[in-house]
Write a protein that binds this DNA or RNA. Sequence first.
DNA 1: TCTGGGGTCCTCGGGCCT
DNA 2: TCTGAGGCCCGAGGACCC
Length: 400
Amino acid sequence: VTRARTILHLDMDAFFASVEVLDAPALRGRPVLVGGTGARGVVASASYEARAVGVHAAMPMSVARRRCPDAVVLSGRHDRYAEVSGEVMAVCLDVTPLVEPLSLDEAFLDVTGALRGRRPVDVGHALRARVRTELGLGCSVGVGPTKLVAKLATEAAKPRASPQGALDGLGVVVVEPGEVQQFLHAHPIAALWGVGPAMRARLERLGVRTVGDLAALPDATVRSMGDSGVALVRLAQGHDDRGVVPDRRAKSIGHEETFATDRFGVDELLPVARRQCDAVARRLRRAEVGARTVSVKVRYLDFRTVTRSRTLPSPTDRSAHLFEVVERLLAGLQLDRGVRLLGVSCGSLVEGAPRQLSLDEAGDPGGSVDRVVDDIRSRWGPRAIGPGSSHPGGRDRPVR
DNA sequence: TCTGGGGTCCTCGGGCCT
DNA sequence: TCTGAGGCCCGAGGACCC
């Protein structure tokens, strides 16, 4: 038996776009789009002025510009958003230590033990007010007995778009335990976490359109849908025992890039791969983890995507190691028919990762070269030093 | 209109071991 | 010796999320 909990979900309003407006007040009131500015970019965040004309996240930037020709289009500053996100999370941690960030702009808080006689709705409003006054940013808050209900409550609390900008929403929506069934059942199935286009189509073939339809499905039908179906129906019935987990560690670290124009052949891809390995290795070292699996991802002209991966005998955080593996994985793929995306990713991350010495490390056993490179970058900036092959006129082979 | 970049989680088949 | 069952890891792919 688990005790009833009070879960709060916080979601920043139009986060990236709002941070840009915060840092450049002249933008206030204008449609602002943050995202890829190249030919193949998509919208990552749109201000409410832009949403008023139908622009939304994940829309191709070319479409968004057409719909909103007077929009201010910005490529985004991830480091700045991460910085502001840290400030938001710090405010949350002031409410309770049980904070689980979901992304830069979202978090779950378990406020069960932090109410101290206050009503959840007052805790929600107090949190919003602090984010507004201390950081100058808007957010919406949902509260409920489970993560799913809290998250859906936040949606109900959100501002709405109008040509004049954001129309205030409720700001805070609380769903009491006794209201859960009624609240959940009215939602379309796509509102459920884990229901995207594929699952939605499957459910609609069964005549299921709302969460209520799903909750009422006969047992036999549910069982025929497998484990994921059973879990989904339990969610629809209001059963969701996932707790708030603070301190979640990253399970993978990767970099990928869609090219403005397609690349043909391994020679056009290796310099990119080397740069990506370098960036990923740097992040591994910063996180003080080693990676046991290395994956490459290739997306062809026709959008078909393939991945290849290799598990290493011992974890590594070294750029040269990653590149060796990546080079071998790429050798097994057809690369001469047009590649639009290349990515390198590391998984099976091992904390601390005391690395096993292998023979080919003899020249630089402790990874001291990488460490010196990290040091130079921290003093002189990220562009101060890099692999020769990623510079014009650079060489693709390491100097021996 | 033409589809980013950062991820998580699940499934499935194959290999290997008990 | 043969045949499974079940557990686990690995590799690939797909769905999904913000």
